[in-house]
Design a protein around this nucleic acid. Structure first.
Length: 289
DNA sequence: AAGGTGTTCAACCGCAAGAGA
DNA sequence: TTCTCTTGCGGTTGAACACCT
């Protein structure tokens, strides 16, 4: 005895939406709003559709601020970076890309970006390859982090000498400490790297697509994308102490906080979303509606 | 031109979480 | 505290289209 379906699948229309249905839904939502109840909406709007179907159609297609296609390399980079850090949490990733929906980002990743990124980890793309991704963010972990993966699974990215990093785009002009590297090795291995190589993650350098398809600096800091949100406020994220030695920074420094939040994204999220209301990350939760 | 194969993306499915009774 | 209902999410599917032989 499972739960009753949200609607009678036999009596509601399914499949692609017609332009008339789109217009019906759009005009209803624009004049009445969602009304806090998607289940009741189709009846009110005169649509022979399931409420879930209406919601999906509105969120993924009919909303006025939706962008389709035309992903920039900057957006590619954000998606790869976040996928490396948090895995397939598309709603969070999409929330960082104005106008993009989780479904759209997910489709884009699955059909295009994954192949692009996986190409960056092919053996042929070893260190000598001239035109590959410099940032490991474009070379995602084959087993990306997910909400169920322990925080020590090694998908956090560390700024370091990227000896194992492959590249997808032409090398950027950013100095070495501004590049970041996947941390598949245990922390001890990372610690073995020169302290000067261990810049805070996300890199203080900013990235953007330059004219050659590479990544130039000064346009987008990953601080602005995700991790900075996890580290604001007091008291300090308790896992920060574990990383106080890496960057040669104090336990309460921003660098250390961000490094810890990167390495323990799930912990950081839970912590920030708990009773530290002042530190609750804006935009961490999907706020599409 | 026709058939086969690959790609894209809108839509669906089922589960989990949250809210409220 | 428990149950029900709704929403939100990520994974998957399948129709339409593009490309290849």
């Amino acid at each position: 005895m499972g739960r009753a379906p949200c609607c009678d699948k036999a009596s509601v229309k399914r499949g692609p939406w017609s332009p008339e249905e789109d217009e019906q839904l759009r005009s209803y939502v624009q004049s009445h709003g969602i009304g806090g109840n998607w289940i009741a909406l189709p009846q009110k709007a005169g649509l022979n559709r399931c409420g879930k179907s209406c919601r999906l159609r509105w969120l993924n297609y009919l909303r006025p601020d939706i962008k389709h296609g035309g992903y920039t390399e900057q957006e590619d980079h954000i998606i790869c970076s976040l996928y490396n850090s948090i895995g397939s949490r598309w709603s969070i990733i999409a929330s960082k890309l104005p106008g993009r929906t989780d479904n759209d980002v997910k489709n884009y990743w699955n059909t295009k970006l994954k192949k692009k990124a996986m190409g960056a980890v092919q053996p042929r793309a070893a260190a000598s390859a001239p035109s590959q991704c410099t940032s490991s963010a474009m070379a995602p972990a084959l087993s990306p982090a997910s909400s169920s993966v322990t925080s020590s699974s090694g998908d956090a990215c560390f700024a370091a000498a990227a000896t194992t990093t492959t590249t997808m785009y032409p090398p950027p002009t950013t100095p070495p400490q501004q590049q970041f590297i996947r941390f598949d090795a245990p922390p001890a291995a990372a610690a073995a790297a020169s302290p000067t190589d261990l810049a805070p993650v996300p890199p203080p350098a900013t990235v953007t697509a330059d004219g050659d398809g590479g990544w130039a600096s000064d346009a987008l800091s990953l601080d602005d994308v995700f991790l900075g949100e996890l580290t604001a406020g007091e008291p300090l994220f308790p896992y920060a102490e574990l990383f106080s030695g890496f960057a040669g920074a104090a336990p309460d420094s921003k660098a250390t906080l961000e490094l810890s939040a990167c390495y323990f994204p799930n912990m950081a999220e839970m912590w920030a979303a708990s009773d530290h209301a002042y530190a609750k990350p804006q935009g961490l939760c999907n706020t599409l509606t």
